[in-house]
Design a protein around this nucleic acid. Sequence first.
DNA 1: TGGCTGACTTTCG
DNA 2: ACGAAAGCCAGCC
Length: 112
Amino acid sequence: MAKDHSNFFNDVYEVVRLIPSGRATNYGAIANYLGTKGSARMVGWAMNAAHGMADVPAHRVVNRAGVLTGKSHFETPTIMQERLEAEGVEVVNDKIKNFDKIFWDPNTELAL
DNA sequence: TGGCTGACTTTCG
DNA sequence: ACGAAAGCCAGCC
């Protein structure tokens, strides 16, 4: 399982893994951090492969509005919200409450 | 080799 | 303020 096979996917996994508990980020931030800012979709795609990895908390990755867009891709559409609430994140209507304060930007937190 | 798809984002109407 | 369309890159057929 060499990480050099797909740098893009691996990078996404690492960034998502670096997301601290009780925090969440969005696809655009990760894409921007990786340099592929134009392809925020690809981040989601990478997560599609990442959802098979337990080490990748995909539930901490949401869209720029803080909505749990990818919840449907989990084992169950409720897993994402359940896990976020378990982390201490308030979720209402499949949307993260106070997303503005729990938002975790790799470009800022990792201090590029 | 060429073209479609995709867990997004931004902008024009 | 809401709706629809374009743009982006990388994997997959």
